[in-house]
């Protein structure tokens, strides 16, 4: 028992891609399945865990989310839901994409769900030309090919340019 209480108070250090270090309580870090697996397999002996794919701004957001969810008891689901929607409310597309990538990499399912859903909700009623711009995708169709693909599901384009 003594050791488990001790463990709860342990902290670990995460390092973002741009070199900033974050001191995190262990129970907050456990929101991430990636970190949980690392701790379980004792990879945590290193003093600092580098997260080379996540910049400091994104990591700060991710840890804010994890702290809220780690500290709240399960009875406060309503409070967590309103925290989640407030958390993403004014976030721009770039920040959302970074969050999705970070949540995917760190395996934080709840965060991945809400961030990916938020982007999906934003693009769901947009014409595909706009979706292309948002995702910075190059159009590699010839005009003929694009018309043919569109014809496969003509009904889905009703009311769209």
């Amino acid at each position: 028992m003594a050791s488990s209480i001790e463990n709860n108070n342990e902290k670990l250090t995460l390092k973002s891609s741009d070199g900033e270090e974050f001191l995190v309580e262990k129970h907050v870090a456990l929101q991430s399945t990636l970190l949980q697996n690392m701790l379980d397999s004792d990879c945590s002996s290193a003093d600092v865990i580098p997260l080379p794919k996540i910049d400091a701004r994104t990591l700060a957001l991710v840890l804010g989310y994890c702290k809220k969810h780690a500290d709240a008891s399960s009875s406060k689901q309503g409070e967590l839901n309103s925290f989640d929607s407030e958390f993403l409310k004014d976030m721009d597309m770039g920040a959302l994409f970074n969050l999705v990538l970070a949540a995917n990499f760190m395996e934080i399912k709840g965060l991945l769900d809400i961030a990916a859903q938020k982007i999906a909700d934003t693009i769901k009623d947009k014409p595909h030309q706009e979706v292309r711009e948002i995702f910075h995708v190059e159009n590699d169709y010839t005009p003929e090919e694009e018309a043919a693909v569109r014809e496969e599901n003509r009904w889905a384009f009703e009311g769209f340019p």
């Binding site: 693009i123 769901k124 009623d125 014409p127 595909h128 979706v131 292309r132 995702f135 995708v137 190059e138 159009n139 590699d140 169709y141 694009e146 693909v149 569109r150 496969e152 599901n153 889905a156 384009f157 769209f160």
Partner: peptide, 12 residues
């Protein structure tokens, strides 16, 4: 419906 439109974004 949104996905069927997204098929037009690119070949990938």
């Amino acid at each position: 419906k949104s996905l069927l439109r997204c098929k037009s974004v690119s070949k990938n």
